[in-house]
């Protein structure tokens, strides 16, 4: 589904990603772990198409076409979803209005009929219940005044409604207490299927107790220095990242 080859990127003159290789197939869950500053969030930003990041080499092929050539909205419509580490507050924009517009933009692109207000409400309320979000949420402006946990759950709600083929979760676990973590993980697990894939970016192993990955990759200084199965995450939890960094050097 996604083949990242020798991807290099940075901000202004600063090189951050120095040659990432990663292959994600449908049905798989990949975890990308690494210490602060290793390039985890840069990878998510580059995949999302955020302004200010320069891709200086390599490619990211998504379902046969170059993802990096697409505008952010085209990526979303093609089924790529990034759950952001810091979701933006948008005062004045009603959550229900925003989410329905987004869902319909994606549906139109897929050649599906737009959801009318009634069917949208029915679908969204069901998902909200699963995520433990009060219906009040829909009346509030997008993320405005939300707590950290509410913002993260709102990301998962958007993901559930947009039903992406490839979901990238950028430190979705940061700032969550254990109950919220479980709710978020359940939301992600519910989405797992043969036709889609998830990339979970995290600093800590604890999220992987709930979202069990098929593959674990360690990112260090802009490169993936080790890949393995879920036991690698447990090893990292016990031994930290330093031994790997030394091994790589």
């Amino acid at each position: 589904m996604l083949q990242i080859k020798k991807l290099q990127a940075g901000i202004e003159d600063k090189r951050i990603l120095k040659g990432i290789d990663l292959s994600v197939n449908a049905g798989e869950v990949h975890a990308i772990m690494g210490p602060n500053g290793s390039g985890k969030s840069t990878l998510a930003s580059v995949l999302a198409g955020r302004d200010g990041y320069d891709v200086t080499g390599g490619e990211a092929i998504y379902n046969g076409s170059d993802l990096l050539d697409l505008a952010p909205e085209e990526r979303a419509r093609e089924g790529v979803f990034i759950a952001f580490q810091y979701p933006v507050e948008i005062p004045g924009v009603n959550s229900a209005y925003f989410l329905r517009s987004a869902v319909n933009a994606v549906r139109t692109h897929r050649g599906e009929a737009e959801l009318d207000a009634m069917s949208f409400l029915k679908a969204v309320k069901e998902k909200m219940k699963e995520l433990g979000l009060s219906e009040e949420f829909l009346k509030r402006p997008v993320n405005a005044g939300f707590s950290g946990g509410e913002k993260k759950r709102n990301e998962i709600l958007q993901m559930a409604m947009l039903n992406p083929r490839l979901a990238v979760l950028d430190e979705t676990d940061s700032g969550l207490d254990i109950d919220a973590l479980r709710i978020v993980a359940d939301g992600v697990n519910r989405l797992r299927g043969r036709d889609n894939a998830q990339v979970v970016i995290t600093h800590y192993q604890r999220l992987l107790d709930y979202i069990v990955p098929d593959f674990v990759h360690v990112l260090h200084d802009g490169r993936i220095i080790k890949s393995g199965d879920k036991s690698l995450a447990i090893e990292l939890e016990e031994k930290g990242y330093d031994w790997l960094a030394k091994e790589a050097a």
Binding site: P72, E73, A76, V88, F98, A102, A105, H109
Partner: peptide
């Protein structure tokens, strides 16, 4: 950017 990343 946030809104575009959701398909708008």
């Amino acid at each position: 950017f946030y809104l575009r990343a959701r398909g708008l």
